[in-house]
Simulated assay, not measured.
Amino acid sequence: MSSDEAPESDRVPGAPHPRHSPTIIGQDHAVADFLGAVDAKRLHHAWLITGPRGVGKATLAWQIGRWLLADGDAKSLTAPPDDPVARRMAALSEPRLHLVRRGFDQKTGRLRAEIGVDDIRALLSFFHLSAAEGGRRVAIVDAADELNGAASNALLKILEEPPAGGVILLIAHQPARLLPTIRSRCRELRLAPLPPEEMQRVFAALEIDGDAQALAALSGGSAGEALRLAGQDGLEAYANIVALFATLPRFDRTKARALAEAAGARATADGDPFDLTVTLLDRFLTRLARAGLMGAPVPEAVPGEAELMARLCPDADAARIWAGAQAELSARARTGRAVNLDPAALVMDMLTQLAGQAPAHTKA
């Protein structure tokens, strides 16, 4: 696969890369926080942009980067599309910008599972080599919670001795996974899930096809996730997961194998089937656990979901079991990807393990 065809780890399949997004929707509070800091002459050398996946963290980081390098005014982060800095950033040819993200492994045909120490060493070289030119330089790390241990330690050293004129924008979906010392050296911009009215604005702006209500329910206020689900037939895949769990406690192994085989398909520029499957399983288990505490979800993401969840998770005791299963699944998925286990076999193993959670509290 050529570099032009390879998937980008920081782009939602079916959506434009955040560097091409002209504006951010529904995060006015975070924008005001950043501009307020600039206005007060408190531009920190490192910013940690946090929040759920797909709510605009990367879009905000790229807007801040454009603003910093183009010397924008203090009232708005919006840059004209014909601005030379904006054009160079869109083409990934701006010499004062460095992007750190998971690369594509040509041998496995998949995105790497982690950001490695060599990626952070390249960032250090960027700051050293560009220091002689003077002026402001910007680095975007997407996402910081994908750094492995050695990379995290290398990044910490950069944050401890920040380069003159350098600003580092760290995107984190799960900031608790970062080293506390990294978090303590950053100023945080926290983004929230989008409310329904803002989600509708995003759907209209990006012309998202599909059941808007179902996509909004399953994406949890994440416009990026809604785009990915729409572009990868995510609602159909989620319906298959619901159909599989509806067979509990018997557990239909034929349906399970079909899910696992679909997850094992090769990643393309349109997305990674394994990542989609794990994400949807995680979302199903999260909604399932909440059903035991707060009642079945409304609205449903797919028909029959509410009835199934009321059966599988009728009370708080069941909710604790499913929440524990969700945490274990996430850990197994990260470990499996890190050591390049076969995706189909890994998903089949996870499904079998999850089915084993059901008999103690599931009515046939």
Rank of each mutant, 00 (worst) to 15 (best):
V31F: 04
M199P: 09
M89Q: 08
Q213G: 13
A58W: 01
L124S: 09
F245L: 10
A345P: 04
W62M: 11
F104W: 13
V339D: 13
E8S: 12
R334M: 08
H98K: 01
I25L: 09
P195H: 11
V141L: 15
D119A: 15
A344E: 00
D349R: 03
T277Y: 00
L99A: 00
T279P: 00
A91G: 09
F251H: 13
E160S: 11
A6R: 15
L235F: 04
G210D: 06
D233V: 00
L35C: 08
Q232S: 15
T108Q: 10
L227D: 03
L293G: 11
P22A: 12
A176L: 02
A214T: 12
G220T: 12
P84N: 00
L60D: 05
D270V: 02
A316L: 02
Y238R: 07
A122I: 05
T362E: 01
G271L: 07
V85P: 10
L312I: 13
I140N: 04
A150K: 13
L159W: 02
A269T: 14
E8T: 06
V55C: 10
V55Q: 04
L124H: 13
G36Q: 00
G165W: 00
A58D: 05
D342M: 02
A144S: 12
T50A: 14
A91W: 00
T335G: 04
L69K: 03
K363S: 02
V85E: 11
L329P: 14
L156R: 05
P359F: 07
R11F: 08
L77G: 14
V298I: 12
V339C: 04
V202N: 04
L189N: 06
G264C: 06
P297T: 01
E5Q: 15
E307G: 14
R187C: 07
P18D: 02
F126Y: 06
E225H: 09
P22K: 14
L170A: 07
S76L: 04
F127W: 14
L288D: 10
L354A: 05
L97H: 01
D209E: 14
L218V: 13
T279G: 12
L179D: 10
A46D: 08
Q232N: 13
S21W: 04
I140S: 09
D4G: 06
M199G: 05
P195W: 10
S330V: 06
D10M: 03
V55N: 02
L179K: 04
K363H: 08
S93H: 01
T181G: 05
I208M: 10
Q63R: 15
I321D: 15
G116D: 12
A86P: 11
W322M: 09
A260N: 02
L92Y: 10
W322H: 10
Q357A: 11
D282I: 00
A79G: 12
W67E: 11
A258E: 10
L169Y: 02
T268A: 11
I64Q: 04
E5M: 13
A289H: 12
Q27Y: 07
E197G: 03
